[in-house]
Amino acid sequence: MTGALLEARELQTYYGASHVLRGVDFRVARGETVGLMGRNGMGKTTLLKSMLGLVKPRYGGVWVRGELVTGVEPWRIARRGIAYVPEGRGIFPNLSVRENLTMAARPGVEGRCDWTCQRVLETFPRLAQRLRHGGWQLSGGEQQMLTIGRALMTNPDLLILDEATEGLAPHVAREIWRIIREIRAHGIATLIVDKNHAAVTAISDRNVILVKGQVVFEGDGPTLRARPEILLQHLGV
């Protein structure tokens, strides 16, 4: 295989009789930032979950660092350096902030331990003030910071963010984007699904648009910005 960190080929996924992914080719290279776009129900989250092993694709394959991981248990895929920040966050409400972070802690694939609890708390000072609070006591923005911080505790090579700024107040969303840029600058590859297309294309190296489970566009930010009709046609903006 090629040197991609994460690669999917001809992925087809069904939910019951509904054919959600209709042959998707997708890849993220080391250190690359990819924006994944598409309207609701076009298969973005299904593509993420199929690559993470959380949903079983019916056809096609997924490779991490050139190794076939189709059918491998999700936790084994995650251990290959992929961290997932799911839509709707997914903090553990019955664990404290500190526990949410420490339970995830693990060295990266190559043994790196760049992200420690201390470093995460420096990145998210608001969490530092709430270490003893239960996850359920946090505001939406704090929960999102905790989910991202928790993902970083696994020292990933790829961070997948599904609607990380959804439902957040503008100033909180700006804070999240600042952090995503910081993570990106650190050399961690990021795969971003977000409705704020301007913010995505501003930091992405490459963008992929999904329509009805198929890739209809692939290109960098300037290309996408230069052709607003593509956004209008496929995303309605």
């Binding site: 999700p74 936790w75 995650a78 961290a83 799911p86 997914g90 339970m103 995830a104 993902a151 696994t154």
Partner: peptide
Amino acid sequence: EMVQSLGL
């Protein structure tokens, strides 16, 4: 699902 996604 989230526990698994953390590699546990």
